[in-house]
Every structure is written in C-alpha cells, then in structure tokens.
C-alpha cells in the first residue's frame, strides 16, 4: 500500500517534510504490529523528509525496512531480536573455533578446508593462540574448539592446548591416528579436567569411513579412541554423513556405545558442500548461524567455511571482542533482511 500525499505548497521545507510523518502515523496505524506501511517522499525535499522519517522511527519504536528512491517502507514496531530467538549456546561468541595449522596426515575427500599432507601449514602460533584464549575468556566466551588439519602434527601442541585450557574449557579435534611416541607424550601433558578430544569416525564398520578418509584410517581412529580413554580423556565422536544416510543412525549409535562413547558425546552431522566435497548441503552466510572461527588468515563466519572468501569476516583477529561484535552485527542484519523478505513474499 502506498499512502498518497496530499499535495502541498509549502512556504518552507520543514512543514512540508512533516507531512510525511503524518502519512506514516496513519499508514502504520492501519497495519498490525509487524506489518509494513509505505510512504512516498516529496522529490522536492527528499533528504529533509527522509531524515525526519529516520528520526520519527527512532523515537516511536518503528523500523525502516527499505528506502528505494522516493518510497520508504516502515515496519510497525521493531522486528524481533534475532539473538533472543537463538538457543544461548548458538549466540555468536558463546564459543570460538581456532584452526591451529591446516596441514594433515589425511586427505579426506570431504575435507571442508582442503587439508592434506600437501596442504601448506598455516599455523596460528603459540603467541596468537595465547592472546586469543585470554581475550576470549575476557569476552565471555564459554569454550574454545581447536581444529587442524591435524593438530597433532604440531610439535608444540601440548603447550598450545595448555594455554587454552588454562583459560577455558577446550575441545581438540583430531583424527586420533597419531597417538604414538612423542605425540602420545604431548597428549599425556594435556589437562584431562579441561580438555575433551573429538575424533572423527564416520561409520560402524571400516567401509564407509575408509572410502572417504583412506584405507586403514577407521581401525587407527578406533584404536586412538581407546588410547585416549586409557589416558583418562573424555572423547567425543563426530561423524560426517551424506544427507541421505542421516536416517540410518541406530547401528552407528550402538557401535559408538560399545566403544565407550556416551550418547551426549556422539555428534552426527550432514556433509557440507565446502572445500573438496563435491556434494552436500549448501551452507551460506544467510543460512548458517555463525560460529566465530579464527585462522592464521583472519576471522571467518563458520568453521565449515574457513577457506571460503564469501565467509571471510576480517583480517583483524584482535581485539577479539570486536571481531565477535562484527559477526553478531552481520548476523542480526542478515536475519532482519531475511525476516522482512519472508514478510514481503508470504507463501500462499
């Protein structure tokens, strides 16, 4: 609905700009809260009228949805707070992901960041990780999650992990295949009370797992879980399944039960279409609730897209609180835009 303006011949710009506020009050009054009203600005004093609409919306608790040429669309009331609609664990910054290196002893065909033995190491480094951990704790982050490539390729991993667990509960993602020799010694130096290991296992038997991750990898991962348990660590299992297998989970859960993974630590997710995966569900900034993710290159929207330009947020990791605030701001803006699009194009 476009509310027609009564033609006016203004002696000065101010009163005629005021007319648009009268139109707006009337238009807003005709639609329920959440509805949209549209007003037309006078071409002659567009800027003054628009300023006034902005001021009126701010003072009256209504919200400008769009300005196109001379047409302004205003929502009756404010859109609901997108953050308030989230589960507290989903609020951006409730946890922070850090990519520690990117290189990996495996070359899984679905790896969302194209890690492999050939991938160049891009290490976050001890100094930056220490600063991330302490700034995260100060910014109210509840948990750190470290991922590789394969973090156990790093010779200083024990020190890196301890700098995190000193500040916050931490989860370390690993393929679980390297718990031998010096690397096992490093594992032993980590803080069992603050660290959870998360190991990838994709199936109850070697077939599917090995077809994506390499021959023999399933047996080594299952053995790695046993070693970690023997060392007194809590182990979560994360499985990445094609969307069409997500309905056959019972045998898989039973298997994980037998190797001592508690049900709350059995995390099964659908394959994402990122990196070298050639099929999977589409994840875009619009559809993904952000998870603040830090790599050696900067801050990303979400860990599944930590090498994807479209989800790059900022090169500036510090202050970490600013990076979290920027991701939160973008999330709110995306949600508001999506909400108003949904209201404009209702499904019949």
């Amino acid at each position: 609905m476009v509310i027609p303006r009564t033609p006016v011949s203004p002696p000065s710009a101010a009163p005629s700009a005021m007319g648009v506020v009268l139109d707006l009050i009337e238009g807003i009054g005709r639609v329920p809260t959440g509805g949209m009203a549209t007003v037309a600005l006078d071409a002659a004093n567009r800027i003054a009228a628009l300023d006034l609409v902005v001021a009126w919306c701010a003072s009256s608790g209504n919200e400008i949805v769009s300005v196109e040429g001379l047409t302004v669309t205003v929502r009756h009331g404010r859109s609901p707070d997108p953050l308030a609609q989230l589960d507290p664990a989903q609020v951006p910054g409730s946890r922070v992901w850090v990519y520690t290196n990117f290189d990996c002893n495996l070359a899984c065909d679905y790896c969302c960041v194209r890690s492999s033995p050939k991938a160049e190491r891009r290490a976050i480094g001890a100094e930056r990780l220490q600063q991330i951990a302490s700034e995260a704790a100060a910014a109210g982050v509840g948990e750190l999650i470290l991922t590789g490539g394969e973090p156990f390729l790093l010779n200083d991993l024990d020190a890196l992990v301890n700098s995190c667990t000193d500040e916050l509960p931490t989860t370390l993602l690993t393929n679980g295949m390297l718990f031998r020799g010096a690397r096992l010694e490093r594992l032993r130096r980590m803080d069992r009370s603050r660290l959870t290991l998360q190991v990838s296992v994709d199936s109850a038997t070697p077939g599917i797992h090995d077809s994506h991750r390499g021959t023999g990898s399933w047996a080594k991962a299952v053995d790695g879980i046993r070693i970690a348990h023997d060392e007194g660590f809590r182990v979560k299992v994360a499985a990445t399944l094609p969307a069409d297998q997500m309905h056959e989970l019972d045998p898989f859960h039973s298997f994980l039960d037998t190797i001592g993974i508690s049900r709350e630590d059995q995390v099964i997710r659908a394959l994402a279409h990122r990196g070298v995966a050639d099929s999977g569900i589409e994840l875009t900034v619009d559809s993904l609730i952000p998870e603040v993710t830090i790599t050696a290159d900067g801050v990303y929207w979400h860990p599944v897209a930590a090498d994807h330009d479209a989800q790059f947020v900022t090169r500036d990791i510090f202050p970490l609180a600013d990076a979290i605030a920027e991701i939160t701001r973008r999330f709110v803006a995306h949600r508001r835009a999506a909400d108003s699009a949904a209201e404009w194009f209702p499904c019949a």
Partner: peptide, 10 residues
Amino acid sequence: IGRGELLPGA
C-alpha cells in the same frame, strides 16, 4: 508526531 521536537520549525 514527536511533540514538535522531531522537526523544530514545523
């Protein structure tokens, strides 16, 4: 309409 404060002069 903002008690006359929104657009002084109107």
